[in-house]
Computed example of a mutant assay.
Amino acid sequence: MAPELIFETNMQLRRRMADVLDQTSAADLNRIPVGYRNNIWWNIVHMVVTQQLLCYNLSGLPMTVEKDIVKRYSKGSVPAGVPSQAETDKVRAYLLSSVAQLKSDYEQGIFKTYNAYTTSANVTLKSIEDALLFNLFHEGIHYGVVLSLQKAVGITRA
């Protein structure tokens, strides 16, 4: 496995999500189209939260995202209200900083233990390396959902 490529790819995905945040109106970010149960905003924050849960929480380490955000955007949650500008700014910063922090922490070897976890995709994660790889897969799924949501709310990509 090549962790460097995983981190590089993850950062590219997150840059695309940061661009979506920067280029999409608050109304479009928070619109839930007919046939969907969430919105662009929820998917973006869910990506940040899931990375924290899979990598830090399951390694027994403190997460770098507030517990309130984790609770509101974890698996099984649904959008509840419109985020404040402060929350939007915080999440925008987390998009890139959480990947950079994860890479730094991984390189420093802070991930010593891992509590095995079977995902909803029926993949059992047994190590931080498994979590890094699965997280990239997970974020790719949500990137696809964001693209679908953009189309559903009438956003055309150049």
Rank of each mutant, 00 (worst) to 15 (best):
W42G: 13
G81I: 01
P3R: 02
K90A: 14
Q108E: 13
D22I: 05
V123R: 02
V91S: 04
I110T: 05
Q150D: 07
K103M: 08
S127P: 10
R157N: 13
L149A: 05
Y73L: 00
M47I: 14
Q23D: 14
L29S: 05
Q150F: 03
A86R: 09
K151A: 15
V123G: 03
V99F: 03
Q51E: 15
P83Q: 02
E87P: 06
R15N: 12
V34F: 04
Y114S: 02
F7L: 10
K112P: 01
A121L: 10
Y114M: 00
K90T: 12
V146H: 03
E66Y: 00
L132W: 01
A18M: 12
G60L: 04
C55A: 05
P3S: 11
D130H: 00
N38S: 14
L21K: 09
A116M: 09
Y56F: 11
V34R: 12
Q85P: 04
G81N: 02
S127E: 04
L102G: 10
D28M: 08
S98A: 03
L149G: 07
D28N: 13
E139M: 00
T9L: 12
S98F: 03
T50K: 00
W41M: 06
N10A: 14
Y94H: 15
A27Q: 12
A100R: 11
F137I: 14
V153C: 08
I32M: 02
V49K: 00
M47G: 12
S97V: 06
D19R: 14
T50Q: 02
R31L: 12
V91R: 12
T24M: 01
E129P: 00
Y73V: 11
L53C: 03
V82E: 10
Y117L: 04
S120R: 09
K126P: 04
T24C: 02
N57G: 01
V153H: 06
I69F: 02
Q101N: 15
K112V: 15
L149W: 03
A26Y: 01
L53Q: 15
D68F: 04
Q51P: 01
Q108F: 06
I110F: 04
N57Y: 07
G144A: 09
D130S: 05
V91T: 07
R15A: 00
G144N: 06
L54N: 02
D28T: 04
E129K: 05
E107D: 12
Q51R: 13
A26T: 14
L96Y: 05
L54M: 11
R92P: 07
Y143G: 13
N30M: 09
V34N: 11
K126Q: 15
Q85W: 06
T9V: 11
R16D: 15
A26F: 01
